[in-house]
Amino acid sequence: MLQPGDKAPEFKLYATPDQRFSLAELQGKNVILAFYPADWSPVCSDQMGLYNNMLKYFSKYDATILGISVDSKWCHLAFSKDRGLHFPLLADFEPKGEVSKAYGVYNEEEGECDRALFVIDKEGNIAWSYKSPTALNPGADGILEALEKLNPKTN
């Protein structure tokens, strides 16, 4: 798993059936990458639902959140619509798990990514990373602490 100080690997993944999202496009913003095992599973839904309620806190720290799983763009579309999510879910679908592997958070046995969080700074370096037990919703306290360190002035 990539650690603070590592360069965040670039990616370009589908966020909707006709739109792809790259890390480079977000340069100049802090980025939160939330890898999660699967759409629809109970823990993930709670975790994504929690982040959905926190977007204004993230934007206070000039940060954008992106969810990532190996589910397809159509699956993401349905999941996102069902839960009313207001942030993009990226499909690490083809080649399967490529981005998860680059970040060191792919679980070969399950064929899914781990539940892992990364905070990437405005220069594209990893500022904080955390891997949570798959069954546990990691909350957002670690994310906010990491963002706070990046933006000391907003306190």
């Binding site: 709670d46 975790q47 929690l50 309620n53 919703n137 306290d141 906010l144």
Partner: peptide
């Protein structure tokens, strides 16, 4: 209250 919860690791 909400923010204090987030800070304390409330996840649901």
């Amino acid at each position: 209250d909400f923010e204090s919860g987030i800070r304390s690791g409330v996840n649901g």
